[in-house]
Simulated scan of single mutants.
Amino acid sequence: MITFNQIDSQTFLKDYWQKKPLLIKQALPNFISPITPEELAGLSLEDEVESRMVLQHGTQDYELRTGPFSEQDYASLPEKNWTLLVQGMDRLIPEVQQLLNQFDFIPRWRIDDIMISYATEGGNVGPHFDHYDVFLLQAAGQRKWMLTAHNCELDNYLENTPLRLMREFNIEEEYVLEAGDILYLPPKWGHHGVALDDDCMTYSIGYRSYKGQELWDSFGDYLSESSLFQTMYLDPNWQNTQPGEINNQAWLNAKQLLQAALNDEQSLQRWFGRFATQLDQQAHNALPEPLTDEEAGDLEAFIEAIKQADYLERDPICRFAFQRICEELVLTINGFEWPTEGIADGVIMQIANHDRIDANTLQRWSKQRPVTEWLYQLWIRQFLQFPDTTEQAECFEGEA
Rank of each mutant, 00 (worst) to 15 (best):
R143E: 05
I7D: 05
L257F: 15
N5D: 12
E327K: 14
D355L: 09
K25R: 14
L215N: 00
P339S: 09
I182K: 07
L45F: 03
V371Y: 10
N263H: 13
F105D: 08
D61P: 04
D15S: 13
I171F: 03
L64D: 04
F336Q: 15
G346H: 15
R108T: 12
L64Q: 06
Q87P: 03
F105G: 10
E397T: 10
A305Q: 07
S9M: 02
R314K: 13
I303T: 13
N237P: 03
Q269F: 03
E214H: 12
W251I: 15
P162S: 13
W271N: 14
Q142H: 13
L137P: 02
D133C: 13
R52G: 05
E63M: 08
P78V: 02
L92A: 08
S70F: 00
K80P: 02
F322N: 09
N160H: 13
R324K: 15
D235N: 13
P162W: 11
P370Y: 06
P387E: 09
A41T: 01
F31N: 00
L177M: 10
P68V: 01
W216Y: 08
S117H: 07
E225H: 06
S227H: 07
P243I: 09
D358T: 04
G122E: 08
S227Q: 08
T161Y: 02
V134E: 05
F383S: 03
T241L: 10
L163C: 08
L13Q: 05
